[in-house]
Design a binder for these strands. Structure first.
Ligand SMILES: [Zn+2]
Ligand SMILES: [Zn+2]
Ligand SMILES: [Zn+2]
Ligand SMILES: [Zn+2]
Lengths: 134, 134
DNA sequence: AACGGATTTGGGAACCGTTCTCATTAATGG
DNA sequence: CCATTAATGAGAACGGTTCCCAAATCCGTT
């Protein structure tokens, strides 16, 4: 099957959302992306931000996680198209780095198999304070 | 340092919440715990359910995760007082099993250290379909 | 048993992030 | 251009969680 189907045409607003996210190195909430765009003078609606964020997520170009507070936050990860990967995320400033996770991939697979679970997926995030925030 | 201080006295409502959660083997939302208690004829308020769920979480007797949909769900894990651990969770029915995670603990620690992060914590959950739901 | 202060309870309002609705605007292509 | 189709964005609606506070309960003390 083909990778994923883009759900939106390339539009100015979509590009703005992508660029705003790409400019950050960390996970950001939809609202904060929206705020940044508006502060920058961009004419865009909150719904549109959510829409594109979702589309990018579907396309696999944006990663989404729920931080410990339950907030949904997004990060542009499309320049390292290795597909599935994980992050170490700064609890304070949101800055994130992608990390090598083959060990944890194997662990998750084996663990699920041992419990007899199928169609498995996993969430793995490491939170801490980055060197700057420490 | 001492483990954790209980924030609420032992009350009938607290016991009801704990028992309701203990009766389930999976992660449940606050609302669903509330619904079960009310359906059972218990006289309890939603605020109270949230309060005790939080207190139990602080005490470490209840685990809380955010499932992929972002819902906050709780699970009673106080009978296996090994402290920190992880789960394999059924996406469909919520059923969960605790799993051995020393490998992933080490991985998380090393990964964070390599990135220069301190005061680290992590979330690791494996989602899938349990044998019954498959 | 009666009292008084401290704690807990729970109904409802407030809050906040996200989704939905739909009239308006912009793009496409013939 | 015009007609058709897709995207936009303002605001309403929604759902989960927290907050507020008056009423109820609990407890140690007379
Ligand atoms: Zn930081
Ligand atoms: Zn992984
Ligand atoms: Zn557990
Ligand atoms: Zn199941």
């Amino acid at each position: 099957m083909s990778p994923q189907q883009t759900r939106t045409r390339a539009t100015a607003q979509g590009a703005a959302v992508r660029d705003a996210l790409r400019a950050e190195d960390g996970f950001r909430s939809a609202q904060s992306v929206y705020a940044v765009l508006r502060a920058d003078g961009q004419k865009i609606g909150l719904s549109t931000v959510y829409r594109h964020l979702q589309a990018f997520t579907d396309d696999g170009v944006v990663d989404v996680i729920h931080n410990p507070d339950g907030e949904t936050v997004y990060r542009f990860c499309g320049d390292t198209p290795g597909g599935h990967h994980h992050h170490v995320v700064c609890r304070s400033c949101g800055r994130a780095e992608e990390v090598e996770g083959s060990a944890v991939e194997r662990w998750a697979e084996q663990t699920a198999a041992k419990a007899g679970f199928v169609d498995v997926d996993h969430t793995v995030e490491v939170f801490g304070l980055c060197p700057d925030c420490a």
